[in-house]
Amino acid sequence: MLPTPTEWSIPRWISVLVRSLLGCQVLISLLGVAYYLVGLDSWRQEGSGGDPSADASVLHDLHLVLGEPAVTLYTLTGIAFIVWLRKARSAAEFISPDATLDTPAWTVACWVIPIGTYFLPYQVVRKIWLASEPRGQQPAAGPVRSPLVLTWWLLFVVARLSGGLVVEIPAQFSVGGHEVMDGVLAGCDLVRAAAAVLAMVLVHRLGTLQQARAAQLFSRLPGQPAPAPQL
């Protein structure tokens, strides 16, 4: 007797947790974008003899308060995402036993390999995605290729590389070369927000694909209930 969906599918709470943490990352990144853009305007005002706007001061305080919690949030999100990916790999192995997948240990270890961390996880996620896509009506039909995984990974790598550009926000606004730096930092936060949004879509979409693929599998077996859809 085949295992029930609750025994092989990704636990719903893990998917919800990962998407919630990613949503918090989006909010913090967008806050950074707003801070730097408002800061640009404030420096121009100060250069003209004015004072930084009240909005800029509020955003500055929020950015300082959320600085350390944001680092913890990124770490927790990374751990939760890897746990989710490990579960997704197990589900993909069940619904597509003929698929070529990396080992469970490599699914985790690939994220900490020096240099390889910039391309190895993409290969792992791509294999899981391809194994999770429903098959076509014809046996020879291959899985439909999606640009989602590649787009997400490119944004993720750019976001990681841009992390080296982040510097401590000065306690006071000052004039002289800050406009360019703030524009760059705002762009970095915007890329991080976009990568997090696509990661949320990836988590939801992969779960949906695996449910559809499992429905195909169970439909061929008499007496087997179709898996319940994930939210």
Rank of each mutant, 00 (worst) to 15 (best):
Y118E: 01
Q216N: 07
I169Q: 10
S162K: 01
G136K: 08
R12I: 09
H178A: 12
S20L: 15
S146Y: 06
E93D: 13
I169F: 10
Y35D: 06
V149Q: 02
A91D: 12
G187E: 07
A199F: 00
Q138K: 11
V180S: 10
W84G: 00
A199V: 00
T208Q: 14
V71L: 15
F94A: 11
S20V: 15
L17H: 04
V124F: 09
I113T: 12
Q211P: 00
E168G: 13
L62M: 14
V125P: 00
A56S: 13
P121S: 05
L62F: 12
R192A: 14
D102E: 01
Y35F: 14
L155K: 01
A159P: 06
V184M: 09
I169S: 06
I14D: 10
A105F: 11
H63Y: 10
H63K: 04
P222H: 14
R89C: 03
C188G: 05
D98G: 06
L231V: 10
G32L: 01
T75Q: 12
A131P: 07
L30M: 06
K127T: 09
H178E: 14
A105C: 03
C110G: 09
V180P: 00
A88M: 04
R44Q: 15
P5K: 08
C188Y: 06
T107L: 02
L59R: 02
L185F: 04
P104T: 02
P143H: 09
S146Q: 12
I79G: 12
L76Y: 05
T72E: 05
T100F: 06
L198N: 03
I128D: 01
L120Q: 08
V38I: 06
I79K: 13
E168L: 09
G177R: 09
S42Y: 05
G187Q: 07
S15C: 00
V124G: 07
A186I: 03
R192E: 11
L85K: 01
G50M: 06
L161Q: 03
Q25G: 10
A226L: 15
G116E: 04
G223D: 14
V191K: 01
S174E: 13
Y74M: 10
A194Y: 02
L64K: 05
S96N: 14
T103S: 15
V16D: 07
A195D: 04
L64D: 05
C188M: 06
V26K: 00
P69M: 11
S48F: 10
T4E: 15
P229E: 08
V26Q: 02
R126T: 04
Q211D: 11
G207N: 12
K127G: 07
L165F: 06
G207D: 12
R145G: 06
L165Y: 03
V83P: 05
S29D: 04
L161G: 05
I113F: 05
A91S: 15
E68G: 11
T6S: 15
S48V: 02
Q210D: 10
Q230S: 07
L217F: 08
